[in-house]
Amino acid sequence: MKVLLTGSKGQLGSCFQDRLPDGWEIWATDSDVLDITDLDKVKQAVTQFKPNVIVNAAAYTAVDKAETDRELAARINETGPKNLALAANEVGARLVHVSTDYVFDGNATKPYVEEDATNPLGVYGKTKLDGEIAVAEVQPDAIIIRTAWVFSEYGNNFVKTMLRLAKERDTLAIVADQRGCPTYAGDIAQAIIDLIQKKSQGGVYHFCGDTEVAWSDFASVIFNVALEREVLEKKPIVNNIISSDYPTLAKRPSYSVLDCGKIRSENIDMSNWKSALEEVLLKLK
């Protein structure tokens, strides 16, 4: 199995490399090595390497910055995935593309299934949805994985931010009216590997953590586990606030819980994020 990986230095890309099965050959690229927004360069790279699978873990993920940086967000989140799909078709490769829960508006009252209507609230979610559509049109057999609230031992994420703030402050105000499912990047990587090995049907799959929480709940769990594992010497007091108390450029969905029944039918378990959190905190320690 030959895999071309994009976004190799991000959370998912790093975890994917950690879990690469024996016998798989990988070309791990980042934007310095391969600019996915340049179709000619993408085609040249793919023709040269001739992968069986392309895993696109590259994305523009600065949700608020995207509101004023629309062009770059669109190039990375829409044009880039389309270029990868076009190049994949030329060598008979399959594309696995990673998307987000932010394609939904958060007005649901039960977990979103893959067929639910999308309605992104901001530029980030809109460009990610456009990327999904572009990929599906170019390569109908591509696998598109929507995930949410990603954390890991790599890169910048909510867990690391909370640990840093906990060492600086005695109290923290955390949003309590946005609910979703934390997801360990290592579990997303394993799910991708499993889907590839199983030669699963193309289309959209939801994959996220196994229990839903608010951001404030997630923070409290992080602090409790970090204290138990002696990653923190003390834990701050968490004060619940509502989204309007903490205005951001981009509006977030208030409820973005994903129904993972489809991917579970492939015998792939959801991310046990509390167990993964313990492992991540020990690694960070």
Rank of each mutant, 00 (worst) to 15 (best):
V91H: 04
N83P: 02
E132V: 13
I144N: 08
I145F: 02
G106T: 01
A148L: 07
K128C: 01
F158T: 00
A108F: 15
V150H: 02
L129Y: 11
A108C: 08
K82V: 15
Y124L: 05
A134W: 07
V135G: 06
V113P: 00
V135F: 03
K110P: 02
G131W: 07
F151N: 01
D101Y: 13
T79W: 10
T109E: 08
E132F: 11
E168H: 00
L95M: 07
V135K: 06
Y124H: 06
Y112E: 09
R164H: 05
L86I: 15
N156Q: 15
L165A: 08
K167A: 09
K160C: 00
N77D: 13
I143L: 08
D141A: 11
I144M: 01
Y102I: 12
F104L: 09
T100P: 01
N156D: 15
F151W: 05
L129T: 13
F151E: 02
V150N: 03
P140C: 12
N107Y: 13
N119T: 09
E153V: 00
N107F: 13
G155R: 05
D101S: 15
G125R: 01
E153T: 00
I76S: 05
E90W: 12
F158I: 03
N157H: 10
A142M: 06
N89K: 15
R164F: 07
E137G: 12
A85F: 09
Y112H: 12
A117Y: 10
F104W: 09
V150T: 08
A148R: 12
F151A: 04
L129Q: 13
T147I: 03
V150A: 09
S152R: 06
P140T: 12
A87P: 06
I133C: 04
A134E: 10
N156T: 15
T127W: 05
P140D: 14
G92K: 01
L129P: 09
V150Y: 00
Y124S: 00
E78N: 08
P111A: 09
K110S: 14
P81H: 04
E90T: 14
G155E: 03
G80N: 02
G92P: 01
T118A: 08
T147H: 07
A87L: 11
K160P: 02
P81F: 05
G131K: 03
V135Y: 06
N157Q: 13
Y112R: 03
A136E: 13
P81N: 01
F158Y: 14
I143N: 07
T109R: 13
A87F: 12
G106V: 04
L95H: 04
V113S: 14
V123L: 10
G106D: 08
I145V: 15
V96R: 02
E115V: 11
E168R: 01
L84V: 03
T79D: 14
G125C: 05
A148F: 09
G80C: 03
D141S: 14
P140S: 13
A142I: 09
P120G: 14
P111I: 06
K128A: 00
D116F: 06
